[in-house]
Design a protein around this nucleic acid. Sequence first.
DNA 1: CATGAATGAGCTTTCATTCAT
DNA 2: AATGAATGAAAGCTCATTCAT
Lengths: 204, 204, 204, 204
Amino acid sequence: MSADPGVPARTTRGERTAARLRAAARAVFADRGYAAARVEDVVAEAGVSHGTFYTYFENKAGALDALIDETAGQLQAVVDEPWEGTDVLTTIAAVIDRFVDVFSQHGDVVRTWLEASAHDQHFRDRLREVRTGYVERVAQNLGPALDSTPHDPQVAAAALVAMVEGYATQGMTSDDEEQRASVVRTLASIWFGGLLRLMDPSTS
Amino acid sequence: MSADPGVPARTTRGERTAARLRAAARAVFADRGYAAARVEDVVAEAGVSHGTFYTYFENKAGALDALIDETAGQLQAVVDEPWEGTDVLTTIAAVIDRFVDVFSQHGDVVRTWLEASAHDQHFRDRLREVRTGYVERVAQNLGPALDSTPHDPQVAAAALVAMVEGYATQGMTSDDEEQRASVVRTLASIWFGGLLRLMDPSTS
Amino acid sequence: MSADPGVPARTTRGERTAARLRAAARAVFADRGYAAARVEDVVAEAGVSHGTFYTYFENKAGALDALIDETAGQLQAVVDEPWEGTDVLTTIAAVIDRFVDVFSQHGDVVRTWLEASAHDQHFRDRLREVRTGYVERVAQNLGPALDSTPHDPQVAAAALVAMVEGYATQGMTSDDEEQRASVVRTLASIWFGGLLRLMDPSTS
Amino acid sequence: MSADPGVPARTTRGERTAARLRAAARAVFADRGYAAARVEDVVAEAGVSHGTFYTYFENKAGALDALIDETAGQLQAVVDEPWEGTDVLTTIAAVIDRFVDVFSQHGDVVRTWLEASAHDQHFRDRLREVRTGYVERVAQNLGPALDSTPHDPQVAAAALVAMVEGYATQGMTSDDEEQRASVVRTLASIWFGGLLRLMDPSTS
DNA sequence: CATGAATGAGCTTTCATTCAT
DNA sequence: AATGAATGAAAGCTCATTCAT
C-alpha cells in the first residue's frame, strides 16, 4: 500500500482487467444463468469493451472454465485435507463444515457449472472428473467400515456427498452463522447415523 | 397463437400429434439439454413440420412446461401416498423406492427442468413450488420424531430428499434391477440411521 | 319472411356465409389494418373455419377485392348522378353531401384500400382507376367555367376531391347529424368560393 | 439491444453507417411499402449486414420512427414560420409552396407513415399529434377572419390542409418546375377563394 | 359445404465473435 | 491493451394456404 513507489504495481493492468472480467462473468452467470448470459452483459459489468473479453478468454466457455479452475481445486481440497478429529462425528462435521464453507463461496460457480453440464459435453466431463475425485476420497475414508456389509462404499459416498451438494446448491445455506452451524450439525448427524446404520448387519 | 396452445387437439389425430411432440421434446431435451435444443430438432424427431409445434405449444418453454405438468404430479404423488409399512425402515424404503421409480421414468425431465431453472425464473418458481410441496410432506412425516431435538424437520427433510434427488438425478442410469434394489436399500438405511441419530439427544 | 315455406330461402346457406365473411373481413381490416389482419382473425369473427374462407375468396387479397367491388360502385355513383340544383352552391353541396354519405358507410373499406395500395400494385391500380373516374367526372362539371383561365380543370378537380376524401378518410366526420351538416356546408363553401376565385382572371 | 438504438454512433464511421441505413430504409419503404419491406431489403440496399441494422434501430418500426423524426419537424416548420406576405393570397401561396416543397422532399416518408398508421397504433398516434399540431397552427392564422361566421376554423383548416396533403401525397410527382408552380397557384387560389367565401355571411 | 390439422416458406431478431483502428 | 462497429450464422416464430376427412 505505502510500499516503494519505484516498484511496479504487483498487479499489472492486464491482471486487474482479467480479475474484473472473472468477477463480472461470475456475477452475470449467477444472475442470469450461463445460457442466458451474454458476453455483452459480462463486459458491461466489467466496464470493458467487447474485444477485451476475447483478449483474456477464448470464448464464453473459456470464461466459465477459468472460474471452474478455481472452484474445482477448492472442492477437492475439502476432502483431501486430513480427516482428523477427536471422534468420527467430529471428523465428519469438520469435513461437512469445510464443504459448506466452499459452497458458500463458490456455490454460484457450481450452479453455473451444473447448468452448463446439461448441454455441454466439456463441462459434463470436467464435472464427472471432479466429482469422481472427491467421491472416491470420501469412499476411501468410509470404505473400511463397510467392508463386511453389503453396501457399496461408492454408493454410500455418492449419496452422502449428493446430500451435501444438493443441500448447498439449492441455496439453502443462509448467511446466519448460527443457522449455518445448526445445518452443519444436522447434516453431520445424518451422515454419522447413516453410517452406523449401514454398518449394522441387521439392515443388510 | 393461431390455435390456443392451452386447449389443443380437438380430435384424436391432434392428440396423437401432441403426444409425439411431447415425446420428441423430452428426448431432444434429454439428449442435447434444454438450452441447446432447437425447435427444429424436436419437430424433426416428431416427424412434423415447424408450424405444427406452435399449434401445440406456445414456444420452447411451453413444451417443457407440458412435460413438467406430468412429472410434477408424479413427484408429489410419491410422498402423498400413505406412508405405510410394517416398520419405519420398510416405510422409508417404500417411499424411496417410489421416488427412485419416478426418477427412472421422469429423471430426464427433471434434469431438463433443473437446467432451465438456472436461466428461467418461471421454471425456478415451479421447481421451488414442487420441491417445497414434497419436502413439506416428508417433514410432516419425520417431524414428530424430531420434536424434542434441536434439529429442524425442514432441514432434515430437505437434506434427505436432496440425497435421493441428487443421487437419482446424477447417476442412477442403470437398468439392472438387482443393482437398483441394492441402491434403494443403501439409501433407505442412511435415511433410517440418520433419523435415529437425529433423535438421539446426545448429538444435539 | 312469412313467405311460402315451399320456396327455398332467398339467401342460401352459402350466400349467408359469404356475407358473414365479407362483414367480418371489413371489420377486421378496419380494426387492425390490412397488413396486420390475419385470415385467422377474419374466420374467428365470422365464426367459420379456415378452409371455408378459401371457398369464398381466392386469398386475403380476394376478400379485400370483394369489399372494394361494392365500394367503388358507390363512389362512382356519387359523381355520376346528375349535378342538379337550384344554383351552383346547392349543386356542389349535394355532391359533397353524397360523398360524405358514402364515406360514412364505406370509409373503413377506403382506408383499408389506401393502406393496401402502398404495398400492392393491384390495389394501387384499382385505386388509380376509380379515382381517375370520379376526378374526371368532377373536372367535366367544373371544366367549362375554367376554360378561359390558366387553371387546369384536372388539377382543380383533383384538389377539391382530395380535400373531401382526405377530410373524410381521416375519420373527421362525426355521427352527429347536426355537425355533419355543418361540415358539409363548410366544405361546399370552400369548393364554391375556390371555384369563383379560380374563375377570377385577376388570379392567373 | 447490444447497442442502445437511442444513442448510436459514437464515431463518424458509425454516423455514416446510420445515415446509409436511414436512406436505404426510406428508399425501400417508398419502393415496396412499409408492410412488404423486409429488413433484408434495407440492409442489402445499405450494403451492410443484417446485424448492423439492429445496432442502429430497435426494429423495422424503429427505422421508420427515425425517418419520421426528421419529417415531422419539417412539416411543423412549414406552418410555424411567420405568415408574412404583401397580401393574403401571397401569404397563403408562400405557405402552400413551403408545404409542397417539404412534400417533394419527404413525401415518400409521409406515404410510408400513412400506410403504417393503418396497422400500428404508435404511428397513428404520432400522425395525429403532428397533424393536430399544424392544423392548429393554420386554424390560428385563419381563425380571426371566421370569427363572425358559423364556420369552425378547425374544420376549415383541416379541410384546406387535407387538400394540400392529399394532392401532394397522391400525385405531385412531377419534377417540372413550371408545372409545380402552376399547381401551387391553383391550390392557393382555392384556399383564398374558399376563405373569402367562408367569410361571406350569405353562405352561413 | 364445412372443418381444422398440418404445412413450410419467409421473416425478424439475437449474439458470439472478429478485426480495423 | 483496448476499443466498438460490423458481421452473419442461427434460431425463433408467424401465418397464408392446402387438403384429407
